[in-house]
Design a binder for these strands. Structure first.
Lengths: 208, 208
DNA sequence: CCGCTCTTTTGTGCATACATTCGCGTGAGA
DNA sequence: TCTCACGCGAATGTATGCACAAAAGAGCGG
């Protein structure tokens, strides 16, 4: 693995995990020493992070980890809503029914998973597989990559919100509604169900 | 200005203008000599271009200018549709009416510009100012920057389509419909008018 | 005592030298 | 003649040195 990749991956993970909080100044020499790489690959890593808007201020003196304020959460969700809605719509249009029928069966009993830590892990894995299935079904690589950029920032703010069991149970139902619409090939319904899910997710974040 | 910025700007412009056609292999030494910078800033420029998906294959042997096939045009417009629709919706919600009333007056006589080259230049400038006004009115910097990424690729394929006067006249009317909806604060109408405009734009591209 | 300027220092931007890896061609052996 | 392996070369990946610029601190003047 290349040194620039290691530096990029390490910094990215540490920013997403909050180990490098918003506002942290990343000096080149300091970070290159800390990560055990030279300045050249580290600079490449910082350039990549800057292009993802995870750090900013590359021109001037050092780069700073960008902040995740509540206004940015709203902005993020306005973009996310537009893209996930389109993704659901396209997925309903182009999906392989068998794939989503399988997910449908799994989600029907998903609420049973929410009791234990192991179950919670499996639930998150299930949601991940649903996202992947929708991405795949859109048949639109550009949409998927654009969405990935949004989800990166969502992952950062997820740390700020509480995952209480009631919300997770509701979310499971909302996911199931989306799947049902996709299975039936109902494009508008899939879009609207997605809108509902994201609206409630955002509400859960901002009120916590 | 920094050398890496010059290399980035130059390469970006040459790719968008088609001077560096899709499939062109960009070797580091070759390009660094050609642009008169050393390999270090050139690599940074290539990294940035790769993050915009203007070049690909950064891991491996050399980078290649990405292609702009017809499938990618469809993918691009599916994303663009979602984002511009959301932008129009938000603009209708948050706009300063005076700004769009001014654009409204200008667009009402825009068809008169389409006769001469100078008029055409002013027309494109007018469309540009409309896009800027909508971006501004959304109050969502993240949406604007995401849209900018899409528009970058749109600019590349615009070279492939013909701008015949009839299409431009229709487009002017469609723009005016969008502006009318924004002035009236009609969110859904603005979104639908945008959808119509993009549908026709895409149709004009793929049939030419 | 405060402010301004000059100096020092630290850090970034760039260039170049070195290391490494990948591809390709050539040659030998089956 | 075909295939595989070895070696050479070129291009990429990495490290480091140098130069410049900006920020911080100290000294001087008001």
């Amino acid at each position: 693995m290349r040194a620039s990749d290691r530096a990029y991956t390490a910094l990215r993970e540490q920013i997403l995990d909050g180990d490098l909080p918003a506002g942290t100044v990343l000096a080149e020499v300091e970070q290159s020493v800390r990560l055990g790489v030279s300045r050249t690959p580290l600079r490449e890593a910082l350039t990549r992070l800057a292009s993802e808007s995870l750090v900013s201020g590359h021109s001037g003196r050092g780069v700073v980890v960008t902040d995740v304020s509540i206004e940015r959460v709203n902005e993020l969700f306005e973009v996310r809503q537009a893209l996930e809605e389109q993704a659901a719509r396209l997925a309903a249009r182009r999906r392989d029914p068998a794939v989503f029928q399988h997910l449908q069966r799994e989600f029907r009993t998903a609420h049973e998973l929410l009791g234990t830590d192991e179950g919670l892990r499996r639930y998150y894995d299930l949601v991940q597989r649903l996202d992947d299935a929708i991405d795949e079904a859109t048949g639109n690589a550009f949409l998927v990559s654009t969405l990935a950029g949004v989800r990166t920032h969502i992952a950062r703010i997820r740390r700020l919100s509480s995952d209480n069991p009631d919300r997770l149970r509701d979310a499971a139902r909302e996911h199931l509604a989306i799947i049902d619409a996709i299975v039936d090939g109902e494009e508008s319904l899939a879009a609207h169900a997605t809108q509902l899910h994201l609206y409630r997710s955002l509400k859960n974040i901002v009120t916590s």
